[in-house]
């Protein structure tokens, strides 16, 4: 825990949306540049290509593209940097990376049956994936 906190520095708030935007791109670049290290330490060469991981990182960022409040973007950016640090520090295991970023939210098992269409959304999400 402590080594994570040491490596994560909280930058001052972004003054404007434009500054927050630039920070997001910088973060995306640093994440992309650490992809070779990540593939090396988690031994991902046989399950995923660097471009797939790049697309996966981009889709995580794009999931929040509607947000226009710089403070919220800063907060999400902080969480992203924290996550990236955890990944690069090998604080995770291989199946975390594969489940979260390789298989993604689509899930390995797709249930296309008709039997539980009326079930609650909670249950459907529960069956689908651990990761949100």
């Amino acid at each position: 825990m402590s080594f994570t906190l040491r490596s994560v520095k909280v930058a001052p708030n972004s003054a404007s949306l434009e500054e927050a935007r630039i920070r997001v791109f910088d973060f995306f670049r640093s994440a992309c540049r650490s992809i070779p290290t990540i593939m090396d330490i988690y031994n991902l060469d046989d399950v995923v290509t660097p471009s797939q991981l790049r697309a996966s990182i981009a889709s995580q960022i794009r999931k929040n593209c509607h947000i226009t409040n710089p403070k919220v973007i800063d907060m999400l950016l902080f969480k992203g940097i924290e996550e990236l640090n955890n990944v690069v520090e090998h604080a995770k295991q291989r199946h975390h990376i594969i489940g979260q970023y390789v298989v993604g939210s689509g899930g390995l098992v797709q249930d296309v049956g008709t039997k539980d269409q009326a079930n609650s959304n909670f249950l459907k999400n529960f069956y689908e994936t651990n990761y949100f």
Binding site: F28, R54, A58
Partner: peptide
């Protein structure tokens, strides 16, 4: 969009081994 733009530049960096 602009994020795709950055992604392409990153892919080019990887292809040509640049930073």
């Amino acid at each position: 969009d602009s994020l795709d733009n950055v992604e392409i530049v990153m892919a080019l960096e990887e292809e040509f081994k640049l930073e």
